[in-house]
Design a protein around this nucleic acid. Structure first.
Lengths: 336, 336
DNA sequence: GGAATTTTCGGAAACGTTTTCGGTATTTGT
DNA sequence: ACAAATACCGAAAACGTTTCCGAAAATTCC
């Protein structure tokens, strides 16, 4: 079932059918109706390959994610898929490991799949202009860092939260509850990732409240996963350093920390308070319910693809959206 | 950069370049090397649209998932993506809601994206032959049910666990610990889904051990999500029915149940034992650590795409793989 | 009513591949 | 050394679209 068959069945030319299908104005209403009718009846679907070939472009949007499998990104991915679909594009997904280079991965994907645009979910962008030049399509970065300023505002779009401020607020919350010996559970505080931004927020909050930063209280797990967060917390406990609260960079890490504490006989929040960041669904079902800074995941995902689509339609310049996080009180913080 | 450019640069014809690229035998070693060299230097990538057009087929594998966002399927998806990629195919993902029809979704996807094959992740297959005839490419069902036998063994491939036996084993474990008033937390026991299979395993285990099935102990939440599992557990508690253990159909439901119990002042496992199914990573970090029947997720995912690829290469008939589940002891069961 | 537009449509080229068919070279067999 | 087989390669058609160009038909304008 090709466009020729439809043309024949309608007694018109292929070009006319094509015009109808592409909603071009120069076709009479009568013909349009008839063609549409025949198309419907034969339920004809245009051949994407042929179309892409002649247009020399596809409807593919690349999504490169670092760390699928984490609830946060898997939630994000869920709405991203939906939105991309709704916008009439195809999603081609590439997940990369923690050691991979997102820009390079994006560039390869772009060539392989003839992408129209790219969406980076998570990641660290300390790239040189030369590296960034590898990607030749519009792209938006979601939940990203740009610490070195290697990304030029006018070259790309973004949607994110203010990681520094969010961490600041989380730690301040702990301080307001009377805590002063607050540990930070972070994947790393010098990898130029989001982890570092949040770590800085932690430090800033302490300083602003006249609390000395104790390096022994900053534990670097080496990754966002539960296993390493668990081990890092154990290491902290074993070190003998005393603390009354933990600021965890993500909810999953917070949950792993709670487990580590419990395994060492410490209860949350009686013996130790804890706060996370993300607001994943699971955090509502932990024991105790996790107090956390929730990110508007759905909105972030939605805005991301909307912006990308806008960019592709050449409507307006790249936008940079900063969304608010909100504190959701659970039972994991105790007033001292 | 097209195949013509490469041909020109090599002083050979397009056909020859094409042959080299497709690893056909009838090309001399000298020419092959030269072409490959030029291709490498220009880092030329063939135009997929043109190729797909003339071959009138793509390298797309469709994956339709019911219920992304759940840790189990998101884990599965992770390796599925990787494997499909490694096999040189593209994954096109379609996630469907709980009310959607997977076969129809697959059939639509198949036409839209010119799929070579389909992979169904999760789902209920009580379809008529006519409905199944809609899908015209090889497909494999992973983690599925086929209660009505509408799928003919020779028409498709599958990989799954023995849901009945797994549930049976889980419940038996509770019984062996002295429990006799065991509640079942299930999405539904009559929807022809995996939930129903596991529910039947529960019933069978009780009967085989001489325990009367009490309908009041079977709570149907209406879905696999935490929220409904939580509410269902609350309803069970409110009903006043006494029980000493809960068999949850999935780990996330079990975790939600633990939360519900805790919120009503009941501790696990002191006041109530609980066992789940899935073995998601999170279950290792719940309080207490969840005792659960773990599914070999990675293996399931890997086998699924391997089988699909085999099918596409017409190597051997559709296979049906049944994988083993193993009990992982946590601390959520108490000996009575 | 005739010229000038405008609307509507068909013909044909083009997109970048794969593949069939046939034709030279080259090798093999005797 | 000559025929036959084989290895290697090029020309060209085909895949199903879109789009440019021009032509016919319908409409508008004076």
């Amino acid at each position: 079932m090709t466009i020729k068959d439809i043309a024949k069945a309608c007694g018109v030319s292929v070009s006319t059918v094509s015009r109808v299908l592409n909603e071009r104005p120069d076709v009479s209403e009568a013909v349009r109706r008839q063609v549409l009718d025949v198309v419907e009846r034969h339920n004809y679907i245009p051949n994407t390959s042929a179309r892409d070939l002649v247009r020399s472009q596809s409807d593919n949007l690349g999504v490169v994610v670092r760390g699928t499998g984490t609830p946060f990104f898997s939630d994000m991915l869920k709405t991203v898929t939906k939105e991309i679909d709704a916008a009439g594009y195809n999603m081609v997904l590439r997940q990369i490991g923690s050691d991979d280079d997102e820009v390079k991965a994006g560039a390869i994907l772009e060539r392989e799949k003839k992408l129209r645009g790219l969406l980076f979910l998570g990641g660290r962008y300390d790239y040189t202009p030369a590296e960034l030049a590898l990607v030749g399509v519009p792209y938006v970065c979601c939940s990203y860092t740009n610490q070195f300023g290697s990304l030029k505002k006018e070259d790309f779009a973004s949607v994110s939260i203010d990681d520094h401020a969010t961490a600041y607020r989380a730690v301040t919350t702990l301080i307001e509850h009377g805590h002063r010996r607050i540990a930070a559970l972070v994947p790393s505080c010098s990898d130029h990732s989001i982890s570092q931004l949040r770590c800085n927020g932690y430090i800033q909050a302490l300083e602003d409240h006249g609390i000395a930063v104790d390096d022994a209280l900053i534990v670097e797990s080496g990754g966002f996963d539960m296993e390493r967060a668990y081990k890092a917390t154990c290491a902290l406990l074993d070190s003998g350093t005393d603390f009354t609260a933990i600021f965890a960079v993500s909810d999953v890490m917070a949950i792993a920390a709670i487990k580590a504490l419990a395994d060492r006989g410490r209860c949350v929040p009686e013996d130790c308070s804890i706060i996370g960041i993300d607001g994943i669904e699971l955090s509502k079902y932990s024991l105790p319910t996790l107090t956390t800074m929730v990110q508007p995941v759905e909105q972030m995902a939605r805005e991301s693809v909307h912006i990308l689509v806008e960019l592709l339609r050449r409507e307006g310049a790249p936008r940079h959206i900063l969304l608010d996080t909100t504190l959701r009180e659970g039972g994991s913080i105790r007033q001292l």
